[in-house]
């Protein structure tokens, strides 16, 4: 009965993972989207924790005493614009313009580093004003939420720099456009999470 196992009478090369999938969609891209969908629940839980504990701290400092909205607005803007440079890098590599792609990748990574650097500065300034992980519920939930986001941005920067390094060695051409696209998806996701955090955590008053 092993008809299927043995019926190939011809010499033929099969790819183990054929490019034509049953939905016509790329495996890796579907995987990245599934992963991002999963991340929604991760950040959802962290943001909910923050919301739950907002206004429940027993001792200060409290959010309105410590947030520097102009400063955070600028760094939010920086992250937002890094999404533009990211998508321009993708457009460039899809056109086959690897030189421009390299420039935009590096720009994205630099904007990301600016954001993370700004976050590090914000954290130290909060600590100087007396807010640490241990101080109160606000400190705990704020630092863990934004710290998790910052870690995600950092991972994105590492991936972008890896792409940049590969492209310097000529290993990242138009045939790898999908790789750029996937890392871009991750990067944009991190950006949209920050859009939510900026509004829900910083702007909406408690």
């Amino acid at each position: 009965m092993s008809a299927l196992a043995t019926s190939a009478a011809t010499t033929r090369t099969h790819e183990a993972t054929p490019h034509a999938t049953s939905t016509g969609l790329s495996n890796v891209k579907l995987a990245v989207w599934a992963f991002l969908a999963s991340e929604c629940l991760l950040f959802g839980a962290l943001i909910s924790t923050y919301l739950l504990y907002r206004g429940r701290s027993i001792v200060g400092p409290y959010p309105h005493q410590i947030y520097d909205i102009p400063y955070t607005s600028v760094s939010s803007f920086v992250l937002l614009m890094s999404s533009l440079t990211m998508v321009l890098a993708l457009a460039a590599v899809q056109r086959g313009d690897t030189r421009r792609m390299r420039v935009w990748l590096l720009a994205t990574a630099l904007l990301g580093m600016t954001f993370v650097g700004g976050q590090a500065y914000e954290f130290t300034s909060f600590v100087r004003q007396g807010l640490t992980l241990h101080t109160n519920l606000f400190g705990s939930s704020f630092f863990v939420l934004t710290g998790f986001h910052g870690a995600h941005v950092t991972i994105g920067i590492v991936m972008l720099l890896s792409l940049f390094g590969l492209s310097l060695r000529g290993k990242l051409g138009p045939e790898n456009a999908e790789t750029v696209e996937l890392i871009g998806l991750y990067w944009h996701f991190v950006d949209v999470v920050w859009i939510v955090i900026f509004t829900v955590v910083y702007l909406i008053p408690s």
Binding site: T23, K29, L30, S38, C40, S83, M86, E181, F189, V192
Partner: peptide, 26 residues
């Protein structure tokens, strides 16, 4: 950002559904 930069507007419905499922559930 999701529609244009992440191409959800132009890409397969499947991606959109998977992602929206995650968001809606959350």
């Amino acid at each position: 950002v999701a529609a244009f930069f992440m191409h959800l507007r132009f890409d397969s419905r499947l991606f959109r559904r998977v992602f929206i499922t995650g968001i809606a559930l959350a």
